[in-house]
Write a protein that binds this DNA or RNA. Structure first.
Lengths: 202, 202
DNA sequence: GGCGTTCTTGACGGGATGGTCAAAACAACG
DNA sequence: CGTTGTTTTGACCATCCCGTCAAGAACGCC
């Protein structure tokens, strides 16, 4: 049933995953209930379990389905572009992701916060590989004197931390800014651009 | 029973809160069970409920008890010190907190990630007030040309994001660094010091 | 329209979980 | 010791929640 065969299957699987994203990202795996997901999806609980074998299966289908989207901005960074522009572009794309897909960000945050019980393999594998690969590029740029010399992996961590913060701690960001419903992202974008320009200048 | 009256009460309440910190920080409020907490504390479940009215009461007692510790590093920042040194000191203290009290960090992260259902008031109140107060100091320093002009609140966000990242996403940090059990904090400290020095220089 | 397949659901089982209670164990103090 | 107040616990209850199942509804194809 993993590959949808009929139109109804495609539609309902998508509906279920969207509802599950809503609920899992808001309360974590343990906090979510099948009844809630069924409710949001507008389906009955047994119907959910007709399309997915278990609560766990819905959750892992979500995670693995979203992982590629999540890593794309880093993959897109090109070794043959202008280093500062490439990095600023990565920051910008990552911040756009935080703004446009906050549920996805919180889903991953929740998972990693609890020690990534269901993602450990992919983090230690694909993700670590990708970072290692990009670190080589960053180190080359530093060797060429085109950006400041910094620890490449901590540089990537800082991009993750600063961009995802706006999605994961959105509630706190808005409460502390006290700008009644105003979008915090334009100022964040400007701030992060300044920060990374200054940081990367040799 | 909130103020311990006997030695036994003081000891057991402390034992329970420590065990609860362990369990709540690892799995969130919904994910934690009283049986787990009782097990870690080495007490029976009814005994837990002799000292605290409910699971909820344990959780809120934890949160409010730890909040002061959590905000202290920011409070400690003095308006009459050297601006760059004060800010770097804040970064260092916050990073030390992440290293020495990761459970506390994850507890708060979990709570805010889920929209702070039990902390909204204090975030919109005390925390927002403290940030507003310190923002004034930061703005004065900028007006005097002693640090670069930046959005003061986003500057504080960036300190939170960059330091707490090492506690909250510890699993990912260690997996991506691939340095088998090596302490990531020395390099983090050096990286963050460089980052903020460059950022704050006018 | 008839018929096999796919989809949907009400009712239910079983285990986990927060919380109660009454009685037993223990401590403190005369 | 004996009495009084504190602490501890085994047994239990009610509810929640994941997952099952059998039967019915809808669909697709002839």
């Amino acid at each position: 049933m993993s590959q949808p065969r009929t139109r109804i299957q495609a539609r309902n699987q998508e509906t279920i995953l969207q509802a599950a994203l809503d609920v899992f990202s808001a309360t974590g795996f343990r906090g979510a209930t099948l009844d809630q997901i069924a409710d949001v999806a507008g389906l009955s609980k047994p119907n959910l379990l007709y399309y997915f074998a278990s609560k766990e299966a819905i959750y892992t289908a979500l995670l693995s389905g979203l992982l590629d989207t999540w890593l794309d901005p880093l993959r897109t960074m090109r070794a043959d572009g202008d280093p500062v522009q490439e990095l600023l572009g990565y920051v910008r794309r990552k911040l756009d992701l935080a703004r446009d897909y906050p549920r996805e960000s919180r889903l991953f945050a929740n998972e990693i916060l609890q020690g990534a019980p269901r993602m450990r393999a992919v983090i230690e594998g694909d993700l670590a590989d990708l970072v290692a690969e990009k670190s080589i590029v960053l180190t080359q740029w530093m060797d060429q004197g085109r950006i400041a010399r910094l620890h490449p992996v901590h540089l990537i961590f800082s991009i993750w931390a600063l961009t995802q913060h706006y999605a994961d701690f959105d509630m706190q960001v808005r409460a502390v800014l006290r700008e009644e419903g105003r979008d915090p992202y334009p100022a964040a974008r400007e701030y992060l651009e300044t920060l990374f320009r200054k940081l990367l200048t040799p």
